[in-house]
Simulated scan of single mutants.
Amino acid sequence: MTTEIYITDYNCVTPLGFDVPSNWKALLDGKSGVALHQIIKNQEPFYASKIDSEKLTKEFNRFFDFAQNDNIEFTRLEKMLLLSLKPLVERHNITEETAFILSTTKGNISLLKNMETLPEDVFLSKMAQKMADFFGFKTKPIVVSNACVSGVMAIAVAKNMIQSGKYKNAFVAAGDEISEFVISGFNSFQAIGTEICKPYDKNRNGINIGEAAAAVYITSELNKTEKFSFKISGDSAINDANHISGPSRTGDGLFASVQNAMKEAKISSEKIDFVSAHGTATIYNDEMEAIAFNRMDLQNIPLNSLKAYYGHCLGASGLLESIISMESALNNTLIPSKNFNETGTSQPLNIIKENQTAEIKYILKTASGFGGCNAAIVLEKS
């Protein structure tokens, strides 16, 4: 018999708030973290979702003043990640059978700027070990870095490693920050939008970059103290190797990922209550997703993208959006796909346009990224 794996706790740090309740309230109120920011000197400001650095430092110092006393230095991204993890570590025990998984796309890559020597923290493995040591994890940390599907894949990696018997539980943390490197990369593709993004809308014109940190606790052992639990019923990751940056025109990889995840979960399309999609607001990504979802007969299932609230947070996106999806299920409320007005894909989707009450038991969360990578998980509210 296959061991059942559950998410029983989570937290997040975003421009909309430094915990889940503040984020949820902001979303209900329709607030967006996306605003004009000047990230690169001598360049015009552009729309991005950025955490206020002063607030971040203040919050970090409030919770981790002892770290300064020990002369431990943390990067801005590491502070975000530690803040997201702290409440979970306080509520759950770390044992010799506890995994620590870090999901990130670029990590501390901003450290490379104007550096004559290579700092250790720029290596993802060193960054993960530093955080693991700080919280006292007893096992070697695992890094999941697979472009923009990293957050969703990290949940799947935790699930499968616990089911293998190697671990009994896992803490998964995901984070990425806005940097000149990331901005320059997306600029080279001419993919950055000139306004707050409009996923799936006819007038969409590109992404907004965002930053966030998120953390979840995953376990095979439920107890009566848990306030909620979501079973990770199915997962899959497929690379269609379509192009280094362009998604498959036929949605092959995403279609196969969703198909496999739902097959493992033993549910049909009509059982899905809500789809939390990737929805970057680029012409080709949104079109590819519409095709893949129609191939899976999911075109009538309520669907949203959270990118107009948070921007595209790279390796943190999938985990953050999974958390908000679970919060939706707990509150029986679907959040609209902000800025959507008129369908801009060749095939129909049931885009959520306003806050609405709904019974949500089965959630499908998907992600797609550079290099042809795609991932999907099915979450079941217990």
Rank of each mutant, 00 (worst) to 15 (best):
Y47S: 03
F46Y: 09
I51V: 05
L28Y: 05
I51H: 00
D29S: 15
S32C: 09
F46A: 01
G30C: 11
D29Y: 15
S32V: 02
Q43W: 07
H37Y: 12
W24V: 03
D52G: 05
I51D: 05
V20K: 12
N11A: 12
D19Y: 04
N11R: 05
L16N: 05
N23I: 12
P21S: 13
N11Y: 04
G30K: 09
N23D: 13
L28G: 02
S49T: 06
K55N: 06
V20G: 12
N42P: 06
N23S: 09
D29H: 15
N23Q: 11
D19N: 15
N42I: 02
P45I: 00
L28S: 11
N23P: 07
G30A: 13
P15S: 15
L36N: 09
Y47F: 15
F46T: 05
D52Q: 09
A26V: 03
K41W: 01
W24Q: 04
K41G: 01
I51M: 02
Q38N: 12
Q38V: 03
V13A: 10
S22E: 10
L27S: 05
L28I: 13
D29E: 15
H37V: 01
L27M: 13
H37K: 11
G30P: 04
D9F: 05
F46S: 07
A48N: 01
I39N: 08
K25H: 08
V13F: 12
L27Q: 10
G17L: 15
P21D: 14
Q43A: 03
A26Q: 08
G33M: 13
